[in-house]
Design a protein around this nucleic acid. Structure first.
Length: 563
RNA sequence: GCGCUCGUAGCUCAGUCGGACAGAGCAUCGGUUUCCGGUACCGAAGGCCGGGGGUUCGAAUCCUCCCGAGCGCACCA
């Protein structure tokens, strides 16, 4: 309907003198019901463009729209206030829409707005050095849902996880495993004492790196290596078997954690491949050719001051190793080479300073950086009531994403990460999250869904059978009409969320659906009414179930039959 | 010091190219049930949208200056 009106409005604007061709006519749902089902502020905005009275412009546009618009879809076109044009839907249109919804079923809400566009969403991208943290969880859920939204709006979507396996971090990881292995495989390995940030101390094997990984999982990996190889690795210099074992074990854990959240990646990309196939070298050559690099103090620098930064940035360290930025640029060139039209990166707030370097470098290399979008999210704090929960005491003990899922469940975890704008710092209240009550909005949605399932069961129980065909025009109660309108907004709600890369637009919409259903349920009986009306209402309830279920599916949250 | 994000009701937050009296949930107070799940529904109360200045017919939204919070400013990722 919105698209239909948009087309009509645009056509009318073409008949009005001096309206610029690129003038965009925006339609939106008014905040108040008495302002109709859809409204446009076009005349108000044209007022300043045309230097004319907005109210008069509105009258002109409204007059021409009334002549144009299909009365079986639009009941009225009215000018109101300072120059808004308000539209009301014809009831027949609503019934047709409802019939379409029912026949579309679990595909209702899908649209082809992004058809022909290939999108890649990069998310999680945690280096495999340990279990996923709660912060990674926000990243994972955000990225996954953005990918789903793009999918539902017709994009061809690839979900990708990128990790650095060539740098210092993984070397320290491998050294940590090796030191633990030595303690198992060799006799009488001496220990040493490490002092942590909080001044506590810990005993570790003598070759344990100063900034090594202290988690118990490292010991488990070392035990596995020992079991597989005995003492045979004591004599090899190479860290490779330790890194490989660690990577494999940790990735298995990461994938298992993601699977609990309904997340499955389409592919993984890693830094080592970018070195092996010469892409990193190619990026350095390209930037040199663009005249943006120089050597100083034995390091290779990128002239980021040319892009307005305060300081230049190191690309290759004195040691000859690249900083993480360099392969990251190379990685992004592969996204362009693979032909993606939309390149979405989901990063934590701590990356905000780094990604402009990547974009500027890509720009200098001749890539169209308008295709790249960065979704930046703020940090997560765990609280239990008023008490902050410590998430990371140095490297060893922290609340992992798995711990969080254990405690509150996957549905609540996903919902809490999705209900807030990525821009706001997230206070994740464990107490509230566990409460299956009014305080926890995810249960409200699931409850409405379960209730509909219960009505369906009840119908069967009392032997009420309803045909596939229903006379939907019997649905004239104000709560029925309100519910239908709400349900028909679903495809548009998903499009808005997808376009804005804003999963948090979806939960409030679903809440409105659940509320509209509850009001309908409260005021309109289904089973027990005479058959034609009961059948129509049953179909309306099924439609509500469809939207709730599809909406929850997009969010990656289950729609239970009972709770 | 510089950069990014944020500051909206007691609390947690929406507010989607600037638009009609600023929205929701929770908490508080009041009401609703012979009947399909009361984990529900209805209502009340609650706001100088951090502060000052500006642009505009119109500002929570844009600009500017203050104040406050988080994050970043590594040859760590």
């Amino acid at each position: 309907m919105k698209d239909y009106l948009q087309t009509q409005l645009r056509a009318v604007l073409d008949t009005v003198d001096d309206v610029p061709d690129d003038f965009e006519a925006a339609l939106e749902a008014p905040a108040r019901e008495e302002h109709g089902d859809l409204a446009t502020n076009t005349a108000l905005r044209l007022g300043s463009v045309l230097d004319d009275d907005p109210r008069a412009i509105a009258e002109t546009i409204a007059e021409r729209l009334r002549e144009r618009v299909d009365p079986s879809r639009i009941r009225s076109v009215e000018v109101a206030g300072p120059g808004f044009i308000n539209f009301r839907f014809a009831q027949d249109y609503l019934f047709e829409g409802l019939a379409d919804l029912l026949s579309a079923g679990d595909a209702f809400g899908r649209s082809d707005a992004g058809e022909g566009e290939r999108a890649i969403v990069e998310y999680v991208s945690a280096n495999p050095t340990g279990p996923l943290t709660v912060g990674h969880g926000r990243n994972a859920v955000l990225g996954d849902t953005i990918a789903t939204l793009l999918d539902w709006t017709g994009h061809e979507v690839t979900r990708e996880y990128y990790y650095n396996d060539a740098g210092r971090q993984m070397r320290v990881l491998a050294q940590s495993v090796r030191a633990r292995y030595e303690a198992l495989a060799a006799e009488d390995v001496p220990t040493k004492t490490l002092t942590l940030d909080d001044d506590t101390t810990v005993e570790v094997p003598e070759h344990f790196p100063e900034d090594g990984y202290l988690g118990a999982y490292i010991v488990e990996i070392a035990e596995q290596v020992y079991e597989d190889n005995g003492s045979s690795l004591l004599t090899t210099e190479s860290l490779a078997p330790f890194q490989a074992a660690a990577e494999e074990a940790i990735f298995a854990d990461i994938e298992a954690t993601l699977a609990r959240l309904n997340i499955e990646m389409d592919g993984y990309a890693n830094e080592q491949d970018l070195h092996d196939d010469g892409r990193v070298e190619a990026v350095l050559d390209g930037l040199e050719a663009a005249g943006l690099t120089y050597e100083e103090d034995g390091a290779l620098w990128l002239e980021t001051t040319a892009f307005g930064k305060e300081k230049d940035t190191v690309l290759v360290k004195q040691s000859g190793e690249p900083t993480y930025r360099t392969p990251d640029i190379a990685y992004h060139t592969t996204k362009f080479e693979r032909g993606f039209d939309r390149i979405v990166d989901v990063f934590g707030a701590d990356h905000h300073a780094a990604y402009p370097d990547v974009l500027n470098a890509l720009d200098a290399l001749g890539y169209d950086t308008d295709r790249v979008e960065v979704v930046l999210y703020q940090f997560v704090t765990l609280v239990r009531g008023d008490e902050p929960v410590k998430m990371s005491t140095r490297r060893a003990n922290y609340v992992t994403l798995d711990d969080l899922i254990d405690e509150v469940g996957a549905d609540v975890t996903r919902f809490f990460f999705l209900m807030r704008s990525p821009d706001t710092h997230l206070n994740f209240d464990l107490e509230l999250a566990q409460e299956a009550s009014d305080k926890n909005p995810v249960f409200y949605l699931q409850y409405a869904h379960a209730r509909i399932c219960s009505i369906i069961d009840k119908a069967e129980e009392v032997g009420f059978t309803y045909d596939d065909e229903a006379d939907l025009s019997l649905l004239t109660h104000e709560d029925e009409i309100a519910l239908i309108k709400e349900l028909l907004r679903f495809p548009r709600a998903l499009q808005d969320a997808a376009e804005a890369r804003a999963p948090h637009f979806v939960p409030p919409y679903l809440r409105d659906v659940a509320t509209a259903f509850s009001q309908f349920y409260d005021h309109c009986r289904i089973i027990g009414e005479e058959d034609a009306l009961a059948t129509a209402r049953m179909h309306l309830a099924l439609a509500a179930k469809t939207v709730l279920q599809n909406g929850l599916t997009v969010l990656g949250i289950s729609a239970p039959r009972s709770m």
